[in-house]
Design a protein around this nucleic acid. Structure first.
Lengths: 216, 216, 216, 216
DNA sequence: TATGAATGAGCGTTCATTCAT
DNA sequence: TATGAATGAACGCTCATTCAT
């Protein structure tokens, strides 16, 4: 009774958030390693060093835990991309920066989960059904990213850099297609090329592909 | 005695194959709808209108059933693609034909499963582990497809049509990236563009991207 | 229509009995190898080279098939034992003949199934429940064997050879205990002794044990 | 903080052990009643009044549950036999004590499972395959028992009490043969004799059988 | 609040038995 | 009559979720 008023509550709250962070990290880790269906709440709890029930004090269920991760990652990615883009000068540099950022993310072991999970979910039919269609989650965040790319492309078109005859949605679609981690995996699997070279080729290819047609 | 020789055996065999075909179709359907883990043998059997045990008369287990579907589809796709390519004249036309074929497949409701399932499996980390890595299945088929594309690209390079400074693996990688059903899905979701137009844009984009550099 | 009267029927009947014999032999074989629960009708049919359904034309079910085997074996054993005993002269020789016969049976690969199956069933709680208690089968046959031994023992007692103070049921019980194949298995497992020597020791031991007390 | 140190842990642990004990008892019961293959985890759980899954919190699988029972019983039997033997004076008294102990066990409804289960497993070909051969379990315990009997018999031979011309393995084999519950069951089935009398006869029979030959 | 024992629906799989051919 | 495809009840086992402590 007589609950201590704010300080302890915020202390508790802080501890709670720290705990939640640990759960999210562990879950992200297992998820990236084993995939959704092979991941058990038990293993997540074990990695954090807490009891299974405690996970349910923070997240109502397995799905919600995964959603939280996805939204957090989407949020982080979008913000990082926005920051990355903000620094770049030209439209082309902006898109190249995104390419570099994404592929750098796959390359950097510390950021890999961040980039991989959204792809795992978006590319798995069963998970998309659960997390994208059934829940409306992540929509908003990804839309922001798409809008960002769209605005860069529109700017480029307005500046006469990019091909005005190619609809922006097609440009967006091709751009995001190139970001697939599948091709990256093939690269590291066959060890054929450093990431930076691959990204350079990708950039050259993309900008040649969308370049404004001369004499237009 | 005097057993009727071929007719009854082939009749039985025919019925057996028909049944198997029904199971494969139902399984393909559920698989495309729900994904591997959400698909139960019970539901497959129910859709065919047979008992659960009957499925096991045709396939030793769930994995094997899925493998059968995947191999069948991979086989069919590869053969259709090869046939498609055989008709085309120039290297560019060959690759465009593949693009059209694949996107036409996504568009044609009758061929959708055919095209979707390999993507479902190849893009899901958990399923790749089971079906591509653990079993060696499908490897061979997909390699044939990749080799086909590679040979077209090499021919184009030799003919001075395609950019010799871009490594063939990168060209292959970008080409297959463009075939992702994800972008197609976005299209039909937003209903923005007929498939044929989208494919036309894709082709233009890709060939501009890989075109030989003038003056080279 | 117009069924041919007797000859063909008896031909059919003969074939039928031959078939049944083959099924019984195969079943006995698998049963001895794998035990009741690990034996499947499928395997029995496969060994005979007939269809599963055909087994059910001869025996109403798995249990009944096993019962048929057991009764046949019991019948055969009892008859062989009776024949064996008939030849022997003295009471001691009769019992020794039985010992030799039983252990010889375990030893002779051709007779092993014959001897083993009854033991498997009588010594397995689950099978006894099914085959001895639930069905009343085999009771009669084994009782005849017991009666035979009992009469030999009684004769021996009357002749002053065997200990009159030991109740015949106890003598019977100990006698049958010594016939357990378990001890034989241990022998062949450790390869310590030829069967004939073991049986000789067993006989000496048993007759010393039941010998009439001197001065009585 | 200030976690109560040992009490709660030991309380939990105690409850856990009690639960486990209940499962073991129920499993032992069903096992003795129905045998291994007719015993289902469902029924064990139902008898304890718990859910099926709970059984798996205590034992990784059906086999392991049975092994636990067998080892527990073997352990208990061996220890009780050793204690029984320790009290007895002469070699003959020691073996008689074992006989009395074993048959007393069969007679005492509370100890019946204890004695029966090892026999069920050792005498069923299919179970021996699973539990004795595949797993190495119980081997050690039973060897200790055999060694105990062997040493008593050797002592007796050395003391001139037992027949030196009969190999100890044969003596051991006959001794264990007499301990079979089969004969006891026949007794209680026919209600012919009190257990103590039966054991007395058995003892007299056995020691006459192995007695040193006079004048030797 | 944190725990982790308990739950029970659900899965993949087996196999004795049936029955249309 | 012989077949073997079809059946479906039953099994061992898993794991997301709940709740008494």
């Amino acid at each position: 009774m007589m609950l201590p008023v704010t300080a302890p509550r915020s202390l508790k709250e802080k501890q709670r958030q720290e705990r939640e962070e640990l759960i999210l990290q562990a879950a992200e880790e297992v998820l990236a390693e084993k995939g959704y269906y092979e991941t058990s709440i038990d293993e997540i709890a074990a990695r954090v060093g807490i009891a299974k029930g405690t996970v349910y004090l923070h997240f109502p269920g397995k799905e919600d835990l995964v959603i939280a991760i996805l939204e957090r990652n989407a949020q982080a990615i979008v913000e990082l991309v926005e920051a990355t883009v903000a620094i770049a000068q030209s439209n082309r540099e902006k898109l190249e920066a995104i390419l570099r950022f994404v592929y750098g993310g796959f390359f950097d072991p510390g950021k890999r989960h961040l980039m991989q999970l959204p792809y795992i979910v978006m590319n798995s039919a069963e998970l998309r059904r659960v997390f994208v269609e059934k829940k409306g989650c992540m929509r908003v965040k990804w839309d922001r990213l798409e809008a960002l790319v769209a605005s860069i492309l529109e700017d480029g078109k307005a500046a006469g850099e990019f091909d005005k005859t190619m609809p922006t949605p097609v440009m967006i679609s091709t751009f995001f297609s190139l970001l697939s981690p599948r091709s990256f995996e093939r690269l590291i699997a066959s060890n054929q090329m450093p990431v930076s070279d691959y990204v350079k080729h990708l950039g050259r290819f993309y900008f040649k592909g969308i370049a404004a047609i001369q004499g237009e």
